[in-house]
């Protein structure tokens, strides 16, 4: 006799439930119970669970039906989702593949000076530039230059796309409180959902060999800070200055381009810095779904327990992270300095 039998007969639902004598094992617990010959349910929680209810009434779901239901629902929606999402995201694959090809095809004697020049242009700081040059040399020294470039190409594409989408979304959020309220929970979700979890539906949707698979995973994870900080930055713009802009008859576009975006720039740059860091954090996980780069070596280290391979690749990622962080931070302080608050 199961615990809730009386409840269902009291409600007159025994008929509807069907016979509960069906002794076919329905769950692992049932099987275990049959084998052990003991009562399956331990002490009951005050909240009825699907499995407990099911014991008394066949019509009620089991908990595993919930997970099954989600899966079946997703699989049912998959063809539609795929026909819509596939063409939309296809350019991402092209961009990732293109960038990868470009970064690999570019000979080092162009690529390395170019990277150093970009560092100098962005940071205008001699120590930072020297650090970048030395780090690249170190990577090359342990033959990790090529994989590092692969990783860099992925980060380059994903960060660019994050900024291209994140800044406008952030602007829209700063304009409308309602939009902000509806987007913030979504951003919280994207930031807290374990990163492996959004790989699963993506694997269902796209083929594992397509580069957009990891591209989407990285972008979804990394776009959050740039959205948040763009919104924050625009909301923090001095109200007096906005009032002056209004008083001199600026329209919304002029206000955005001439006042809000320039004054929010330090915050937006901080967001971009975070976005770069977060996309780098996703690189290892993305290598699970065929993203090339340093992550692959880390993964090899884990799979084959090749300690050295994993650690060298890991340090390579750290170096890359420090390079990207220092350059973008130096650029940020440079922007900050030119607009000292009065």
């Amino acid at each position: 006799m199961a615990f809730y039998d009386k409840l269902f007969s009291a409600l007159g639902l025994s008929e509807w439930c069907g016979t509960s004598d069906d002794k076919a094992p329905l769950s692992l617990a049932d099987l275990a119970a049959q084998a052990g010959g003991e009562e399956a349910s331990g002490p009951l929680m005050p909240i009825p669970s699907f499995d407990n209810l099911h014991e008394s009434c066949n019509r009620i779901w089991q908990s595993r039906d919930v997970t099954n239901g989600i899966e079946e629902g997703f699989l049912a929606a998959k063809p539609v989702l795929k026909t819509v999402l596939d063409p939309i995201t296809q350019p991402l694959s092209w961009m990732l593949d293109g960038a990868l090809w470009l970064f690999e095809a570019m000979p080092w004697f162009i690529m390395v000076p170019l990277l150093v020049a970009i560092s100098w242009y962005a940071s205008r700081s001699r120590p930072v530039t020297i650090f970048v040059a030395v780090s690249i040399m170190l990577l090359a020294l342990v033959d990790h230059y090529d994989v590092a470039m692969q990783t860099l190409s992925i980060i380059f594409v994903c960060t660019t796309i994050s900024v291209l989408f994140g800044v406008p979304i952030g602007i829209a959020m700063s304009k409308s409180d309602r939009f902000q309220k509806s987007v913030v929970p979504l951003l919280d979700l994207l930031q807290t959902l374990p990163t492996f979890v959004y790989l699963i539906p993506l694997i269902f949707l796209f083929s594992v060999t397509e580069s957009k698979l990891y591209g989407i995973a990285i972008i979804l994870y990394a776009i959050v800070p740039v959205i948040r900080l763009t919104d924050l930055g625009i909301r923090l713009v001095d109200r007096d200055v906005i009032e002056a802009a209004n008083a001199f008859g600026m329209n919304d576009r002029q206000k955005l381009v001439r006042v809000q975006l320039p004054l929010a720039l330090p915050n937006i740059m901080a967001g971009i810095n975070q976005t770069i860091m977060m996309s780098l954090a996703m690189v290892v996980i993305a290598s699970l779904v065929s993203a090339p780069g340093l992550g692959v070596n880390v993964l090899r280290g884990i799979r084959n327990l090749e300690l050295g391979v994993g650690i060298v690749a890991g340090i390579g990622i750290v170096l890359l992270a420090v390079i990207l962080d220092r350059v973008s931070k130096a650029a940020l302080t440079r922007v900050d300095k030119t607009q000292v608050k009065h």
């Binding site: 200055v241 002056a244 008083a247 001199f248 008859g249 329209n251 006042v259 320039p262 004054l263």
Partner: peptide
């Protein structure tokens, strides 16, 4: 029309200056 009036008819000076810092 209001924007036009603000541009052509009335200019304003603020207590906290409200200049564009950049």
């Amino acid at each position: 029309g209001l924007r036009h009036a603000r541009q052509e008819k009335m200019s304003m000076v603020f207590q906290k200056f409200a200049l564009l810092p950049h």
